[in-house]
Structures are given as C-alpha cells and as structure tokens.
Design a protein around this nucleic acid. Structure first.
Lengths: 187, 187
DNA sequence: GTCTATAAATCGATAGAC
DNA sequence: GTCTATCGATTTATAGAC
C-alpha cells in the first residue's frame, strides 16, 4: 500500500462517503468526523470541497482516456478490442470502486472542470463507437443497432462499481463479463 | 394528457430537477421558481421535500413489482419472460424517464419508506434471478455465470433513462434491446 | 392559494490561538 | 496541524396577512 499523505487521506475518506450519499449530501463535517478531526482542519490540506470532487473524477476520467488510446493504437481485431475495454473497466473499478460512483453520479457538480470532463467523456464514447462500427464493417460484429450495443455495454461497465466491490479474481470476472456481453445469454 | 392537480404539478417539476442535479442538490426554492411561485406556497400542497421523493420512488417501485408478478404468473418460456422484463423497463422508462433517475440514484435519501423500498427491490432481483436460473436448468439459457447475466441485464435496463429520452418507437427499442441482451454483439 | 417575513438549523469556509 | 469560535449564506419549514 502506497503511503498516504493527509490530502490523499481526505480524498480517500470523502470518496467513501460520496459513494454512500452522493457529493451534495456529504458535508465537510461528515468527512472530518470520519477522520476523527474537526472540519476546519481539513482546510489545511485542501482548498475546497469542490477540489476533492475534481480530484476524484478527473484522475479517473484521464485514466480511462489514456488506456482507451492504447487500445485504439493496438492491432487487435474488434472483438478483442472490446474485451480489452471490458478488462479496463473491471481493473479501474476494482482499484477504485468508490471513485467510480462519483464519476458516474456526481460529475454534474463539477464547476471549473465540468467542460473538460465532458470533452473526455465524449471522446471516450466516440472511440468506443468507432470500434463497434469498425467491427460491423469487418463482419466481426453483428449488424444490428450499433447505438444499442454501445450503450448496453457501456451501461453495464459503468455500473460495475455497484455489484463488484468484493470480487476476488478480476481476471475471471472480466472473462465471464466478456462472455455475457459478447455472446449474450441464449444457449 | 391526464389533468394535473397542483400536487402532481409539483412532483412533476421536482422530478425533472432531481434528474439534473439529484435530490440533495435541488432546493424547495428551485422547484418553486421553476413553477413561477414562492417556496412557501409549495407547502399548501405537500408536507415536505421528503414526501415528494417518496412519491416519485415508491410509485415506480410498486409498478415494477406488480408487473413482475404478472410475468411470473405467465406460462411463457424463460427467454420470453426476459423479453417481457425488457419491454417492461422500456415502457416504464419511456413513461417516466426523469423519475427513473430518482429511483436509481436517490433511493438512499428515503427516510420512513427506505426499508419498504429495499424490500421491493430485493424481491424484484430475486424474481429476476429465478427466471434466469429456471432458464438455465431448462436449457433455454446459457449455463455461464448467472449472477453476471442478471446484473448485466439489470444494469442496462436501469440505465435506460440516460439514453432513451427521445425514443420514438418503443416497441422497436424493446426488440433491438432484446436482441442485443439475449444474443450479444458477436456475429 | 400565494404572498412576505422569519424561525431554527446547517452549510462551506475563515481567523486566530495553541 | 488541529483546535474553538464564528461569519455569512443557505436550507427546510412555519406563521400569518391578503
């Protein structure tokens, strides 16, 4: 475990609380109490509540962006690129389950960094869409509604934080999830 | 369009705002302003902010519960039961897109009705799980990880409110969605 | 049924002692 | 680096005039 300085400790504590109740319902007093100190003491390490949220969300969004770029650069076929995306979501979610809740549910409370976040998200979805459409034109992916395939997969991957907090083997999870998302449930 | 009394109008307005920012970030002044009146006037029609949230969430949860009971009672095979569940989510989401946001993201802010909501949700997931397991034992559904199939489908269905607000033909959406969820994306 | 006015509590954030 | 004390703004909700 990496050594946590006081600022990281605040962010880590806040992330846990944000998952339970959402950014708006968590007070600086809640965060402080959870750390055994007073709210005023938090301000020796962070400048504002908003700074905490920005830190949680932007670092995750940039991580997704970087990894998506690696997948795009690879010479995998479309199905294997999808499997890589699935593994990426499983990995990041397992490393920061609580943070994924803020990324999904509290991004609209970003202030200065809102537009930047939206641009990263838009680019990510565009890249995902391109992989699917490339797969369709190369006859690797079924030629049905590509938008529904995109948002169905994305919805499941974005919801991983809700039901995989105690997952042991993340490789097995990624494999099973790939099986279900790519082959469906029918025999 | 059914005639809306003042209380329904308040709930309708609040539901729209709750989707945008979440229950905790929306104030009674926001709701009133959006209706062109003052916050104090709201209290002539509703007793509290909490009552608005309870009304939104419990009515939706009970609708899902009732319809799931009908599906369970039917003599459809497992795949067709799954298709009925998919149609149910598409229908309810198209009728109350904004309310689905509260159902998904703000249920933890329920107070007196929280336990009741949790019991309905638990029962719904149990019924869904039973349909999948029955399909597996009858060789209608693939014998892979049933929990992953359950939560993958449920995640997609619960996220419908995010990307289907302007859907025209809900029958076609339900059919395409069934195709993707049941048959996957592979050719 | 809506208004103004305000109560009582709580919010994020700061000042200054230690 | 944490504390007490507090500011100023904002919250839900109520009282009472119209």
């Amino acid at each position: 475990m990496k050594q946590e300085n006081r600022k990281d400790e605040i962010i880590h504590t806040a992330t846990k609380l944000f998952k339970k109740k959402g950014y708006s319902a968590v007070t600086m007093r809640d965060i402080a109490k959870s750390m055994g100190i007073k709210a005023a003491s938090l301000y020796n390490h962070i400048n504002s509540k908003q700074e905490i949220l920005t830190n949680i969300i932007i670092s995750l969004a940039e991580e997704f962006t970087d990894e998506m770029n690696n997948i795009l650069k690879s010479d995998l076929n479309s199905i294997d690129k999808l499997k890589e995306i699935i593994s990426l979501h499983v990995k990041i979610t397992s490393e920061n389950t609580n943070g994924m809740a803020s990324l999904n549910n509290d991004w609209m409370h970003l202030e200065e960094k809102l537009d930047y976040y939206l641009s990263l998200r838009h680019k990510y979805e565009e890249d995902f869409r391109e992989i699917i459409n490339e797969g369709i034109s190369k006859k690797e992916i079924s030629n049905s509604n590509s938008e529904i395939m995109l948002f169905s997969m994305l919805s499941t991957l974005r919801s991983l934080y809700l039901w995989t907090p105690n997952q042991k083997d993340i490789n097995e999870l990624a494999n099973s999830l790939s099986d279900v998302l790519i082959n469906g449930v029918k025999i």
